[in-house]
Amino acid sequence: MTANTLADPARGAGSVPESATDCDLVYFSSASGYTKRFMEKLGLPCARIPLYATGPRLVATRPFVLVLPTYGGEEGRHSVPPQVVRFLNDERNRSLLRGVIGAGNTNFGKAYCLAAMKIAAKCDVPLLYRFELMGTSEDVDRVREGLEEFWTPKSQNRP
């Protein structure tokens, strides 16, 4: 974790404090923490989108990949957690988003990894990978290798 809290002079006194991160992996995980477990297994530097609105707002300072879960869905509605919508509504974050990785459960049928698919379509970035629950060791290996290749200049220059 390399996040550090910054004052934001542009927003004046009384605004929500911000926390800048230079990690190229940002994730959301609910209180059940399955996505957090996956990130721990991955073992790469990463920053977590705060669970509560009272926490400092996370601001990305370099291109990043977003990892987030979908647990069910009411016929596909409200699948993207409000904390993630809030994070992406910040233009600074949205402009640096390069790809999405989804966590989910195939038992949710059409809603499997729906939040990740929605964000990829909405922000016009690739859906890089999907895994179930907290991921198997094979998932961890494939994401680690995939990210390494994804961040090479050659991959980043692909039209």
Binding site: R77, R94, A121, D124, R142, S155
Partner: peptide, 26 residues
């Protein structure tokens, strides 16, 4: 569907996803 699993170049971003009811402001 996944970039890491396929050859990458054959990857197509899905456009058919309905995002209307999420609280986006962009």
């Amino acid at each position: 569907h996944d970039f890491f699993s396929g050859s990458g170049s054959s990857y197509v971003i899905g456009k058919a996803v309905n995002t209307e009811d999420e609280d986006w402001d962009f």
